[in-house]
């Protein structure tokens, strides 16, 4: 039993390093693409990669999804970051096809607020409820991105960059969320949830 515990602990340690390396990779990767044009594979990739990073409302919500997943632990730690990009792409497809979805901007702002509040309140939502909440908000984020997608860019490269960027934002949230087992980690996470919720309120009322 103790051996199993050690194995789990080692595995957890390794996963933490993997997440941190992925996030560090994101930071190291971006400058190389900084001077590309919007044409071809590279331009399409850069355009897609930077698109989710353009708005703080998107960034806050995506990081919040990762933090909440880490806070809820297995299996939410990986289910939520899987659900979000898939449903977001569905929303994105609706946006590309011009299918209207109401209340896009309030929905995006509410996503930071609701998920931030869930972290602040340390709400241990059942997996289905958490998936439903995250999936619902993902539609708003996806639609907003989809409606703004530049048709000039290489669509495959654009989509690859867009999804990888979103996934890495989740990973950044998960990396931060892994402090949950450290002394004071829960307080730090709940504080971060409070900040994200406050940002959501500011986005909702147009203060930011």
């Amino acid at each position: 039993m103790q051996g199993e515990g050690e194995a789990v602990s080692r595995s957890f340690q390794a996963s933490r390093w993997a997440v941190l390396l992925a996030v560090a990779g994101l930071g190291g990767w971006l400058p190389a693409f900084a001077h590309s044009t919007a044409e071809g594979f590279q331009g399409g990739f850069v355009s897609g990669f930077t698109h989710p990073l353009d708005g703080w409302d998107h960034v806050a919500a995506m990081v919040a999804v990762g933090i909440w997943g880490a806070f809820l632990r297995q299996p939410a730690i990986w289910v939520l970051p899987i659900v979000f990009p898939v449903v977001m792409a569905l929303g994105g497809a609706l946006g590309v096809l011009g299918v209207p979805v109401p209340l896009i901007e309030p929905g995006i702002a509410a996503s930071s607020m609701v998920i931030g509040l869930a972290i602040l309140a340390a709400w241990r939502a059942p997996l289905g409820s958490a998936g439903l909440i995250v999936g619902l908000f993902a539609v708003f984020h996806g639609h907003a991105h989809g409606a703004e997608l530049p048709h000039a860019a290489n669509p495959v490269a654009y989509s690859i960059g867009f999804v990888i960027s979103t996934g890495l934002l989740h990973l950044a949230g998960i990396a931060f969320g892994l402090v949950v087992d450290r002394p004071g980690g829960r307080i730090a996470l709940r504080g971060a949830g409070g900040v994200i919720a406050a940002l959501g309120v500011a986005f909702l009322f147009g203060l930011l």
Partner: peptide, 25 residues
């Protein structure tokens, strides 16, 4: 490392998302 099984599954989900967007395009 039990968590390794998540790597292909997460990549799989990302590919689903990418293909969905490209199909819409």
């Amino acid at each position: 490392h039990d968590w390794l099984h998540l790597v292909p599954r997460v990549i799989g989900a990302w590919i689903v998302a990418i293909t969905m967007l490209v199909l819409a395009f």
